[in-house]
Nucleic acid binder design. Structure first.
Lengths: 254, 254
DNA sequence: CCAAAAGTGTTTCAGATACACCCATGG
DNA sequence: CCATGGGTGTATCTGAAACACTTTTGG
């Protein structure tokens, strides 16, 4: 089978097994190199990038489908995953344009629906624990800086914007640090994470004071060596206290 | 045509004009008699109540569909309307049970899809400005107190709960008072509204102080007469200042 | 005159902000 | 020894919370 035939078979299969006209798009956030990153996939035979996504089986809840898609793409089973918006614009893409951008044979989009409503989920993952895997339609993945995204396929730039906005608003009651950082981290790393998401600088004295006051992290004896400067202490989240603080609505930065 | 034939024709029409397997449910909040109310519809030939809802035309954005459905049910064109969650459980209703509850003829649900994903919207409306209208499937409407709802059709109790939770969280940055109250209102009425949504009492001195400090309302010379007690002053929102305060993130009750 | 609801000011406390210097490390 | 980033405490301000009595009205 050549690619064209494979594509047609793929869409026939989707039509048979999945709900029509409804899809899921996942904005997978990671934190690395002091930058907030999004996992993106490059579509086969093209230079076009888009979000990981997929379809919902006829007998499968939407949440489970999102989890499945995420696990397929990242290999992570337990992760923070949240529905944030459903995108239902009348025109979310131009079929001819997509066909051209993706270098698809002319009639391969016949089975592609006229319009698709997409349910957006965002996930927070520990960059280091992820082993990204491309799907049938794509053959390369990359973590891209949220602040420096190229034009993406479909309305994916818009979807990422909405996800980011949601993340900012929810920063006060979501376990952001817990999910985006490795087990051990330094105070400046945690601060950088919050600064990146909020997109503004925070005072290191006040930040550290607040984090320590909440009692959600514990300082380890270890220090991180290697930089040409004072070795920072390592910290670890106290999972229980973190959850409690979130429930009680602390962790807000106004 | 008897009801059975009408039903079949109705669903055939929906199938032809609308997106399959996707619907909209609207939680329409109103405030009256110091209680937060939801607009519900009674389905024809039954005693079962459910939320106003509808389907999305093939060439229509989901937001526009929600607006259209709301206008059809309330007669109001400009209203506060917001998508809050998409409900995609694998089993959101039992077809046989629904058929029985609604006293539908046995084969009338053939055209009814196996499962439907529903996009939830909530609206805040001025109770007095609404002239509710039943739709094809229903023949009576009623405003019910959110705290005293009977078991509703489908997963509508759950949908209302989620809407209410969202409303509570967003109370700090949504124009709740502006949309739910009539043009002129008293301070105790406004306070009662906030108390009802938050489901806890607020101190009248602090409340009034805060509202006045924000400068989003203006006191009129008029007073409301009629009660066997001191006549309260009437207030009116300063629309511009209200919007500004919301944008700046005031109006939070912690 | 009495019951019911409206109206109003001060004190206290907690959390947020502003702010600057010394320390440790590798090169 | 120097450049770089890490680490820390105090004073001030703002907004939230607690709290009780007087006024008006209709019956």
């Amino acid at each position: 089978m050549d690619y064209k035939e494979q594509l047609i078979a793929f869409f026939k299969d989707v039509d048979a097994r999945c709900i029509l006209g409804l899809s899921i798009d996942c904005v997978i956030f990671g934190f690395y190199d002091n930058q907030l990153k999004v996992l993106l996939l490059r579509w086969k035979q093209s230079d076009e990038w888009g979000l990981p996504g997929g379809f919902i089986y006829k007998k499968e809840s939407v949440d489970v489908a999102a989890q499945r898609i995420l696990e397929e793409r990242t290999g992570i089973k337990e992760l923070f995953l949240q529905q944030f918006h459903t995108f239902g614009e009348e025109v979310r893409y131009n079929r001819a344009e997509i066909s051209r951008k993706l270098n698809w044979p002319d009639n391969s989009t016949r089975l592609w629906p006229d319009r698709t409503v997409s349910i957006g989920y965002f996930a927070l993952v520990d960059f280091m624990k992820v082993t990204p895997t491309a799907d049938f339609l794509t053959d390369e993945y990359r973590w891209l800086d949220v602040e420096k995204l190229p034009p993406l396929l479909f309305d994916h730039n818009h979807i990422i914007e909405v996800a980011l906005k949601t993340l900012r608003v929810q920063l006060s009651w979501q376990p952001v640090g817990y999910n985006l950082l490795p087990e051990k981290f330094t105070m400046p790393e945690l601060q950088r994470l919050y600064e990146t998401i909020l997109n503004r600088p925070l005072d290191p004295r006040n930040f550290s004071k607040k984090m320590r006051a909440l009692g959600i992290i514990e300082r380890l004896e270890e220090q991180r060596k290697g930089g040409a400067f004072k070795s920072p202490y390592l910290f670890r989240f106290d999972k229980e206290k973190y959850k409690k603080a979130l429930q009680e609505g602390h962790l807000s930065f106004s």
